[in-house]
Design a protein around this nucleic acid. Sequence first.
DNA 1: CGGTTGTATGACAGTTCCGTGACAAAAGCC
DNA 2: GGCTTTTGTCACGGAACTGTCATACAACCG
Lengths: 224, 224
Amino acid sequence: MTAVLVIEDDDRIRLALLLALEEEGYSAYGAATAEEGLRRQRESRADHVLVDLMLPGLDGFECIRQLRRDDDVPIVVVSARDDTHDIVAALEAGADDYVVKPVAIKELSARLRALRRRGRVVAATVPAQVFGDLEISAEAGEVRRAGRAVAVTRTEFRLLCELAEHAGRVLSRQQLLHRVWGYETGDERLVDVHVGRLRQKIEPDPANPRHLVTLRGLGYKLQR
Amino acid sequence: MTAVLVIEDDDRIRLALLLALEEEGYSAYGAATAEEGLRRQRESRADHVLVDLMLPGLDGFECIRQLRRDDDVPIVVVSARDDTHDIVAALEAGADDYVVKPVAIKELSARLRALRRRGRVVAATVPAQVFGDLEISAEAGEVRRAGRAVAVTRTEFRLLCELAEHAGRVLSRQQLLHRVWGYETGDERLVDVHVGRLRQKIEPDPANPRHLVTLRGLGYKLQR
DNA sequence: CGGTTGTATGACAGTTCCGTGACAAAAGCC
DNA sequence: GGCTTTTGTCACGGAACTGTCATACAACCG
């Protein structure tokens, strides 16, 4: 029996989903908060997790990340919001699919089947973001320049990922401090220093950066 | 470079998709009919296929079935019709995802990434694995280096299998504690110690590991 | 051109992180 | 029960990393 865990705070929707899934032949059980969902998934591994994005306390994105941390379970987001940003963010956080409420149970079921099928397939492609001769592989925790692995530290890696995630767009020092370091405020020079160190490692000519460029008065951006 | 084949009869849409995909860093090429698409996929295997459902001649569903017959390539349907029947039918035919036009390229790209990630996840449950001169036979419960059997203890073996199963990907100490020892939490030094012992046995030069490498601040990974 | 503002970078100290040897407890094995 | 092997804990030393600072350099502006 295929087990499905539904993490959704709205009681009505959660129960409706559980019933519909049972009807489709799944064994389904629910959790009203992310915390509870994480706990239940640790205790008894479901074959699929459905998760809402708007949850009280820990939100859906964080929930997905934590689920992913120690489990390869297929995660499907079931959200009311049909918004590209949310979809992309959820998938990047580690979700495998995203469906918009109200969802047809037949479709959901078919998507779950497709996910299970895909899970069995063997594929060898390594996902990596590419910027010219620069490759960033978050999973491998690795950065390559011209095919060669470059050793970067954790902070540098986070910084690079953050810039890569918003490739082509400027990020201010404040934004970076906030997103990479979690600082609400702080010395902006810190960013400079780390950008400099990163350049030493990933730029062929650190003094004339091609990818990690400075926009005076604005911040930094990563470009192809 | 990740290659994407777009099977879509409407020239404008196909070209727009191709351009947008290129922009996202993919290598993209197109086909105006199912027949042509099948032929191109046979000749040069793309990493992803996007397919419209309404095609002249052979329709999208049939196209998906034929693609599936000799290829595990991830297939994403890009259709104008947002209809549960179509969605279910397409997924049943073998598609892996279904997005409705007009589609945000960022979303599409994120979905492709999610598909690639998923494909790799279970990929690893392979009986025997080879890492350079290192062989791990999960069934035989045996490790060989340069053809010679190496005696490893049970914990070391589990640890090695876990790393091998996610070859090339970083596993944090917490993940390893959880997956190898079943601990919800615990002293991370434990992992270090066992990694160290394993290195003594499987690395030619344990002080400079080639396969079982440390990613400072992140964890360990096994690489070729 | 000189002043002003913003950015790059080398040096340094404090801290974090990792590897390892030692050791005791636990588990296997005659 | 004695012996060996394996496992987990601890503590220490060293290496790597981080954040701060000072200084030098570059860009901008009137």
